[in-house]
């Protein structure tokens, strides 16, 4: 019987949301390919937290003192050994920063290529071999989808994009947890990671703002930010931005929304001149109402917007500010 192996991650011994989504993808892939599902993760304490999640019959807790802190060299060696032992047909990962960091190296060691950041898959009916599954991933920052297939024998490695699969609710079945101790040699771990730290204290809390107006690279120039600020003021909204605006220093980094910035869920999120790359979307997808103003009718932001205006922001934004002021009297 073929095996789908899902690698999971935990923070403070709690499974990450992204891991639960990867597990959900694994449950579906196993069902559709008639495979058994196994899961694995580093750390025994976190593994027992996963045992309740169901789906997987077997969970491997990868355990070794040299894995106490993440390093690409340590994780690559450990995961490669577990894959060699289990011989899975499919290996799924959450597309996290750690996975981005070491899984391409792991895949290379197996002479495979990771199908990175996939948003879906389709199994040809009646077929179970690894090369009969088509994986979809985004190209051109979400403007195009690509359909990929493995051209080499198992294992097929894929990482799952945030938000692409709905995390399942815990099931009643409990998995058995087995400890897997890889053979690791301290001399092969070449990087010395420091303790993670946060940038300077935040002074704005976008997370609790009910209304947000967010500006992107469509604004073109620092001086133009003023027209979006006026709209935000008229609405009584907080001003936020996509990453390039904060990178350029046009707004402080604490106003950045996205995977490397803040996560927000306001009642209204108005995106002005923002294309809607996944790294931005993960930070604002949970907003109750998304409105987008963009000159490109095919901008990915419209895929998640409730209301859209296709047009030149330099015309639409001042018109909107005037209309809001008028409505407020």
């Amino acid at each position: 019987m073929s095996t789908v192996l899902v690698f999971l991650e935990a923070k403070s011994d709690e499974p990450t949301r992204l891991s639960l989504e990867a597990l959900a993808a694994g449950v579906r892939l196993a069902a559709e390919t008639g495979s058994q599902l196994a899961a694995a993760m580093v750390g025994a304490a976190s593994a027992s937290g996963f045992a309740m999640l169901g789906g997987a019959a077997q969970i491997y807790a990868i355990s070794h003192p040299l894995l106490a802190r993440y390093t690409a060299d340590g994780f690559t060696a450990a995961y490669a050994q577990l894959i060699a032992k289990l011989q899975p047909d499919f290996v799924l990962f959450p597309h996290s920063y750690e996975v981005r960091d070491f899984v391409p190296r792991l895949a290379t060691r197996l002479t495979r290529v990771l199908l990175s950041d996939v948003i879906g898959f389709e199994v040809a009916s009646g077929q179970v071999t690894a090369d009969k599954v088509t994986f979809t991933r985004q190209l051109f920052q979400g403007k195009l989808n690509g359909h990929y297939r493995a051209a080499s024998p198992a294992p097929v490695l894929a990482s799952v994009q945030a938000g692409a699969f709905r995390a399942d609710s815990p099931s009643a079945t409990t998995a058995t947890v087995e400890t897997f101790t890889p053979e690791l040699d301290a001399a092969t771990i070449r990087t010395q990671p420091g303790e993670p730290f946060r940038a300077a204290a935040q002074t704005v809390d976008l997370g609790s703002a009910p209304l947000i107006v967010s500006v992107g690279r469509g604004i073109k120039d620092e001086a133009n930010i003023a027209i979006v600020k006026e709209l935000a003021d008229a609405l009584g909204a907080e001003l936020a931005a996509s990453r390039p605006i904060c990178d350029a220093g046009w707004l402080p980094m604490e106003r950045q929304v996205g995977s490397s910035g803040q996560t927000v869920a306001p009642k209204m999120y108005l995106a002005v001149g923002i294309s809607g790359a996944i790294q931005h979307l993960v930070g604002m997808k949970a907003s109750q109402c998304v409105i987008a103003i963009n000159k490109d009718e095919n901008a990915p932001i419209f895929e998640i917007a409730d209301y859209g205006i296709v047009g030149d922001l330099f015309e639409v934004v001042p018109a909107l500010t005037a209309a809001v002021r008028k409505a407020k009297g």
Binding site: L144, G146, H147, Y148, R149, A151, S152, Y307
Partner: peptide, 17 residues
């Protein structure tokens, strides 16, 4: 070891007004 078989424009997930 992986091939891009085809590309397609994404379909809308949400009906934007």
């Amino acid at each position: 070891s992986v091939t891009l078989d085809s590309v397609a424009l994404p379909s809308r997930q949400k009906s934007t007004q």
